[in-house]
Design a binder for these strands. Structure first.
Lengths: 329, 329
DNA sequence: TTGTATGCGTTATCAG
DNA sequence: CTGATAACGCATACAA
């Protein structure tokens, strides 16, 4: 294995000098910098992240904390994009990432969780899909020992950033598009689980729209469940002329229910997953670029790791219409 | 951070003794072993895997090498289960895992790939979905520097194990079930991409069945593509009374084509993904437990890492029938 | 059976 | 601007 020592010897400089070049330290002459880089290239040297992590306080590892919903694979699609986006960006930024599932820490105490992350050399964590019920995770955020980025939750402080789209606006936009296209007046809104932070935000969006357009709004808690969306649609869609859902998975449940009931109502969802194309009817939905969101979360974590303060990062969303022809490959 | 040093001090023994207890070395008296374990418990000590990896030659890290098909999310579901199964088992076995996508190494030379893995402290790799076209990966397997487990490919040598179901038998079983239930005589078989190792194995299974039952067998290369399966079904299903597909995603394409053509043919797939439930018609398929397969791959890698020789591990499959009611939650 | 000492490949702190 | 050298936390050969 070619190490920093080999590079130093070959370039005729000290190990520490090589390290400085590698880490873009300021106090290095252009000449030596150039020479070292040449040798690095020539020897095909790649810094050992394990050693770097052990030695440095900055160069920590990063954990992706992912929630697994075994039964629904809508989340698989999203999680896969989260992981992919993060891993690729991490490679670009020379960060070392490990994937952790909430199920692995769910019956640990705060101290155990901390010890676990410490033992893995973790200094930064990206939390996807935090809910108000995740007590331990909230404590983890508050304890201040780790730099944390929460995706789709509003936490922001010195060590914590939040990344996500503007859910209120996105919900407003997609619903407005849908009701305008179909001239709807009475909306059945299937909200997400009340523990989720995005639920309230999206609700705010639909409420604003209903207010502005003087629409009749019926809100029901669909809990992000396809089955529940199906049941609620069967019960309440007759008296409404449109079903707005806080997630694609609920939109699918609603649409399949409508098909079974043999009545038509425009349905719109939220997320932009490919599964939408398999339902047989086109639907409007909000498309989030999960790969980009996750990549941005890694960048943000990198910022935090280098000492900067937490902040809120808003990502953009787009409105799309998904049908089978679009997704088949 | 509580380190091995703290444990040693508290227990009144040397660091090396603690290390020996931790790694289950034989030459430690029961008394000190007990005392050390008590202190470990009391202090909530968790060994630092980063330091262990750096120090030891045995305790390497493990990489999951995953192929990403951006456009089809059937693979998302499978990959997610692969990752989840591996990560959970790795935690159990105290192995350190990182996730790597083939896209991250696709334009690297063999040396670059090796350096990359070396720099990450990787000593073992699990390769999912290897094809005959992956030249660099084959060289990586042959070079002998890393312990490797291939999932669904027949490579076996001193440093390499293979893990997967018996694809020939599974294909045979599911097709037999389907033709028996429907009294079919003429099979349209949509095979997978010819680069995939499983393609030939599954083909062998269906050929054997056709021979045994004196069936007319039409084989077409569906390339694991939903769109291609759709086209082939449109063209060839009229003259056959059954469509057997080498993957669920092709089965979905075939079934949707049949629905659009408004004719009925029994269709069976291979994999057991949830997406099957969204097509509107029930289908037979082979269910693979990807979580378990991946977990087993990690166990196998752990064996290799501890010096044992490679071998072939055959996992079991089941035959299932998937419909919407089963998958909605 | 236990302890001591050295090294793994970096980063970081000081002198020079 | 550059170079010794001490950490980082653990494993292990060797000495006791």
């Amino acid at each position: 294995m070619v190490s920093i020592k080999d590079v130093a010897k070959e370039a005729g400089v000290a190990i520490s000098t090589v390290s400085k070049v590698l880490n873009n330290y300021p106090n290095v002459s252009e000449a030596t910098r150039k020479k070292v880089n040449e040798v690095v290239e020539k020897l095909g040297f790649v810094p050992n992240t394990v050693a770097a992590t052990l030695s440095s306080k900055r160069t920590g590892r990063v954990a992706l904390l992912i929630k697994l919903n075994l039964s629904t694979q809508a989340s698989d699609e999203i999680n896969m994009q989260y992981i992919s986006g993060a891993v690729h960006k991490a490679k670009e930024l020379q960060l070392d990432v490990i994937t952790v599932f909430t199920s692995m820490i769910e019956d640990m105490t705060l101290d155990e969780v901390k010890n676990y992350f410490r033992s893995q050399g973790i200094r930064g964590i990206i939390i996807y899909g935090l809910t108000t019920k995740d007590k331990i995770l909230h404590k983890l955020i508050d304890c201040g020992e780790f730099k944390i980025v929460v995706v789709d939750a509003p936490m922001v402080n010195e060590n914590t950033s939040s990344v996500g789209v503007n859910h209120a606006k996105a919900q407003y936009d997609i619903a407005k598009k849908t009701i305008t296209e179909n001239k709807c007046k009475k909306i059945l809104y299937l909200a997400g689980d009340e523990d989720g932070y995005v639920t309230a935000e999206r609700l705010e969006g639909i409420r604003k729209l209903a207010d502005e357009k003087k629409l009749k709004l019926t809100v029901r808690n669909g809990k992000f469940s396809e089955l529940r969306a199906r049941e609620l649609t069967m019960r309440f869609s007759k008296n409404n002329d449109c079903v707005v859902c806080a997630s694609d998975i609920m939109a699918i449940g609603a649409m399949k229910a409508l098909i079974d009931m043999d009545i038509f109502r425009p349905v719109c969802g939220f997320d932009g997953i490919i599964l939408m194309g398999y339902v047989g009817k086109q639907m409007n939905t909000v498309k989030q670029d999960f790969v980009e969101i996750s990549g941005r979360a890694v960048e943000e974590l990198s910022r935090l790791l280098s000492g900067e303060a937490g902040r809120k990062v808003v990502m953009k969303h787009t409105l799309v219409r998904i049908k089978y022809e679009d997704i088949i490959v």
